[in-house]
Write a protein that binds this DNA or RNA. Structure first.
Lengths: 262, 262
DNA sequence: AATTAAATTTCGCCT
DNA sequence: AGGCGAAGTTTAATT
């Protein structure tokens, strides 16, 4: 039973053997690696052509396909996973791997005329992935410790829907003024300032109370501070990493409190 | 001379041999593939942790690093290529591959406790990559055949700088009214409408002539047509693929004319 | 070096 | 199923 092994390796196989190995790998929901000389054509949302050269083709268990050149973070051609239909067939001295999906309608065609390596693998992987210091972490940190924004700030709601979209955090300051907070996890450009301005306008149209707008980010682009000033908005420096640490500290403290109470 | 071969394959190597093969692969600017059980930690712009599991590690000739799980288009961890410093070392029964760069300061740490496969390859690849049906193609198509936008349209300039950014195409219609064109290669959302509105405002502030705004795209989002109507703007359906074909046709025609003249 | 906008963006969340 | 926004977005172009 060739398909039951967790790893198959073919070094410089002939076209026929490569065809079989790749087909079985895809059918068996394995991860398939192919190294060889190929031409690649894509037709779908756009259209592309890649002239012959040596690349690495990866087909994953969910049907996703990647063609990688020898440099670059991004694949030169690809197909995201999902409902992808594969067709693998030897044609004389070439091997064609075609990936096709319906929505959006697109096709990637990889044509090998030389194959150096075919590997198929069954990867056993249930390890959890955790990411810290996202924009959501910053939001949660402010909600848990509002003083991170400013002393006396009290959150009322978050992800509140207003005219064009959602306000990240919404609350009031120590003087009872409404505060609209826009959070960015990295240096904020003028688009962020404009976004906040639009939210502010929407909120001001609904209340007679004074409304402040605060852009929270680890930094600002060149003219952003001036743009904010012109629009009557404010800026508060806040580092996403520090927010993540704050969250950890709060969680730890909560745990300590819990243990103490027990 | 082990480093001079164009492909090395190690199946289930011990830690020491894997260390050597990976180090030499990186030093030799080869593409290195490693399949094995690993834990991955990232610290930099954010922070992440990936618990142990079987994955594929790819290190490319330019120093870029990818860690791929068995599913998904995107790598779970990565490092873009450039000035990346690598450290590969065996520690008892584990193998650590660390990638580090200065700007931005970040580190990816891949720790293997089991290695199924190590492959290093020298990929010979000079094949040209061509992409059609980009937004730029749409712009060029309109400039070459202005009737694609509307009968009688005459372009004056493109990528013209106005207040907040650049107008894609700028011209006048058969009645002498100014026309500002905003191009989107895919379904246009309300952001596109807003963008066009801002450009229109900027242009109107500079002239007494009537100014029309046309959003060009292969489709529109839900409320975009109504938003455009409210703002006094127009929509013109145009398919990026058709634009690309138009370009090809024009080029072919130009060539035919040239041959005829000769 | 900083900024801006596009991308076959992908991905997740929510209506 | 479509709309919306975030992403360790990356990448290329322009100042």
């Amino acid at each position: 039973m060739p398909g039951s092994k967790s790893m198959n390796v073919l070094v410089r196989p002939n076209i026929r053997d490569a065809e079989t190995a790749i087909s079985e790998g895809i059918l068996g929901k394995m991860v398939v690696l192919v190294a060889g000389r190929c031409r690649v054509q894509y037709v779908g949302r756009a259209k592309s052509n890649l002239e012959p050269g040596e690349r690495i083709l990866i087909i994953k268990a969910d049907g996703s396909l990647l063609v990688h050149r020898s440099v670059g973070y991004e694949p030169v051609n690809w197909m995201p996973g999902g409902d992808v239909f594969y067709n693998v067939q030897a044609k004389e001295q070439t091997l064609q791997v075609r990936a096709q999906r319906k929505k959006p309608a697109e096709t990637v065609n990889v044509m090998f005329d030389e194959i150096q390596l075919v590997v198929s693998l069954l990867l056993s992987d249930v390890g959890e992935f955790s990411l810290y210091a996202s924009e959501e972490d910053m939001q949660r940190a402010i909600l848990l410790k509002p003083d991170l924004l400013e002393e006396g700030f009290r959150p009322i709601s978050y992800e509140k829907k207003v005219a064009p979209g959602f306000v990240d955090v919404y609350g009031e300051d120590k003087d009872g003024k409404f505060v609209v907070v826009e959070i960015k996890r990295k240096t904020a450009g003028k688009e962020a300032a404009m976004q906040l301005a639009r939210y502010i306008e929407a909120v001001r149209g609904r209340t007679n109370r004074e409304v402040r707008g605060i852009l929270v980010a680890p930094g600002t682009g060149k003219d952003v501070l001036r743009t904010l000033a012109v629009l009557g908005l404010e800026y508060k420096h806040l580092d996403p990493r520090r927010c993540a640490e704050t969250l950890t500290r709060v969680r730890t403290k909560k745990l300590a409190d819990f243990l103490e109470e027990s």
